[in-house]
Simulated assay, not measured.
Amino acid sequence: MKLCNTPRFFFKKKLRLLSNDQFKYVYERNFRIHVKSFIILRCINNLNYPRLGMSIAKKNIIRSHDRNRIKRLIRESFRLIQHNLLLMDFIIIVKKNTHLLKNNSILFFLQNIWRFNSKKNFKYK
């Protein structure tokens, strides 16, 4: 039996923003980062782990399979880098026509977002 030395990263329920109150709390803090295809809202959550919420309007991306593809990419990118992120709540709002981008482009924008919010790049004052 071969043991794997690589860490296993999960996207458990505790890492998700689920309730209306959790989303409302982040929306009220109103710290926004605008990227070409996304708006990122974030605030400190006083927990020992970051959490993720997503908002993809049907008005912006009409087809459900396009919305689901983008959600899968967002979840996967978050899952892989969650241990390097600041202890914050993040909401990613997807802008119009993001579904026209290829997966590599979407992942590139997401990696830049997470790099900006990583522990390594955060400077304490």
Rank of each mutant, 00 (worst) to 15 (best):
L52Q: 00
K123H: 13
R29A: 15
N5Q: 12
H83R: 10
E76C: 10
C4F: 11
S37A: 10
I56R: 00
R29E: 12
R115M: 04
N20K: 00
R75P: 09
I92A: 08
F78N: 00
I92N: 07
R16G: 11
Q22D: 08
K96P: 05
P50Y: 09
I33M: 12
K2A: 15
K125F: 07
K2C: 03
I44D: 14
S64V: 13
I93W: 07
N46W: 04
K96D: 03
I113A: 10
N30G: 11
I33Q: 14
K119T: 09
N48G: 15
Y124L: 14
Y124G: 00
R79M: 04
I91M: 00
S77Q: 11
S118L: 06
R32K: 15
F10W: 04
F122S: 11
F23R: 01
G53I: 05
R16M: 06
Y49P: 00
F11K: 01
S19G: 06
L47M: 09
N84Q: 13
N112C: 01
S118H: 12
K14M: 10
K125T: 08
K24L: 00
K102I: 04
K95M: 12
C43I: 03
F31V: 09
K14W: 05
I62F: 13
L73V: 06
F108E: 01
K96I: 10
I33A: 09
I92G: 08
M54N: 10
R16V: 04
E28F: 05
R69L: 14
N117T: 03
E76N: 15
K123W: 05
N103T: 10
N45F: 04
K58P: 02
D21V: 03
Y49F: 15
I113Q: 02
P7M: 13
L107W: 02
S37N: 15
F78K: 05
L80D: 03
L3Y: 11
L87D: 12
H65Q: 06
R75T: 02
N104F: 03
I81A: 02
R42F: 10
V35N: 06
F122A: 09
F11I: 03
L107N: 01
Y124F: 13
R32F: 15
K12I: 09
H65D: 08
R29F: 12
V26S: 02
S64L: 08
K71V: 02
K36R: 14
L18A: 04
S118C: 15
M88C: 12
I106Q: 01
A57M: 07
F122M: 06
R16S: 06
N112W: 01
I39L: 14
L86R: 09
F11H: 01
K119N: 09
L17I: 06
K13E: 11
K120V: 09
Q82K: 05
S105N: 10
N45W: 12
N117F: 15
I40Q: 04
S77A: 04
W114G: 07
L73C: 01
I106P: 00
D66L: 02
Y124I: 08
N121C: 11
F116W: 10
K125M: 02
L87V: 08
K36C: 08
L86P: 02
L107V: 01
L85E: 14
